Simulated assay, not measured.
Amino acid sequence: MRCPYCGSMDSQVKDSRPAEDGGAIRRRRICPDCSGRFTTFERVQLRELMVLKKSGRRVLFDRDKLARSVETALRKRPVDPERVERLIAGIVRQLEQSGEAEIASDTIGERVMEALKGLDDVAYVRFASVYRNFHGARDFGQLIDEIARADKAHGDGQDPQG
């Protein structure tokens, strides 16, 4: 594994342990050339996934990009990091098990929105505002009204009067 500090190709594993409920292996590494320490993760990859962008371009699926998007939506929200990792791993697993080699970016966005809706309403609205390209307050209002109607239909609406 290449050292991220000096570029040396000769790093050594100092510690390995299971991570993500056994879905990955976390490895602590050290570079013998610069003594830099860093962590890597090893995960099972069922297949190479390609993402079909709206522009028609095809790019290799990037789990880290998905994680950054989810983490941006969840910034400063009181959500346990383990729940976030399970959400991301679940989306990736769904995509890999779909049987498709190419996944439309819209499909990924919808899966993220659905997962965030069940995790945190604020993160869901944040992600939706970017994903659906909101232009103003009316767009936010419509989405919040949808959430309120869904909560009421499921009996989750709370009466502020007690």
Rank of each mutant, 00 (worst) to 15 (best):
Q158T: 15
D15E: 15
D159H: 12
R47L: 07
T39N: 05
P160I: 15
E85F: 04
F38G: 01
Q158F: 13
R86E: 04
G90K: 13
G56E: 13
K53F: 11
F127Y: 15
E42R: 02
P18N: 12
G23Y: 04
L60N: 09
E96N: 08
D33Q: 10
R58C: 02
C6G: 03
E71T: 00
V112I: 12
F140S: 06
A153G: 15
V51P: 02
Q94K: 15
P18E: 11
P160F: 14
C3S: 14
K76M: 02
V122H: 02
R93S: 11
R132Q: 14
Y131E: 11
G23K: 14
G141D: 07
A137T: 12
D121H: 11
I25W: 09
D80T: 01
E146Y: 00
Q161L: 14
D21R: 11
R77L: 01
L119E: 03
Q45Y: 00
M50C: 00
E146K: 12
R58F: 08
C31S: 03
L143F: 06
V122T: 13
L52Q: 09
R83E: 15
F140K: 04
G90L: 04
S129R: 13
D121M: 11
S105D: 10
R28Q: 15
R29W: 00
C3F: 15
K76F: 01
R17Q: 09
T40C: 05
K117G: 09
Q94M: 14
R126L: 10
I25F: 07
E146D: 15
E146V: 03
D156G: 13
A67F: 00
H135D: 12
I30K: 12
E110I: 10
A123L: 05
L60V: 11
P160V: 08
R77G: 02
S11V: 08
C3R: 14
F127Q: 02
T72C: 00
V84R: 02
A101G: 06
V130W: 02
L95T: 07
P81A: 09
F41M: 03
D145A: 13
I147R: 09
I108N: 05
D33S: 10
Q142M: 11
P18C: 06
V79L: 10
C34G: 01
R58Y: 07
E85H: 09
I108W: 03
R27T: 07
E71Y: 00
F61Y: 13
G118P: 08
D64K: 02
R93G: 04
F134L: 13
K152G: 11
V112W: 04
A67T: 05
R111W: 06
F41G: 00
I147Q: 08
D121I: 09
F127M: 05
P4C: 09
E146S: 09
D121S: 13
E42V: 00
F127E: 02
E102C: 03
D145S: 06
D106F: 03
D15W: 10
N133S: 15
R149P: 00
E42Q: 04
F140H: 08
D33H: 06
R68E: 13
D64F: 02
I30C: 10
T40M: 08
R83S: 15
Q97S: 12
G141M: 03
V130Q: 04
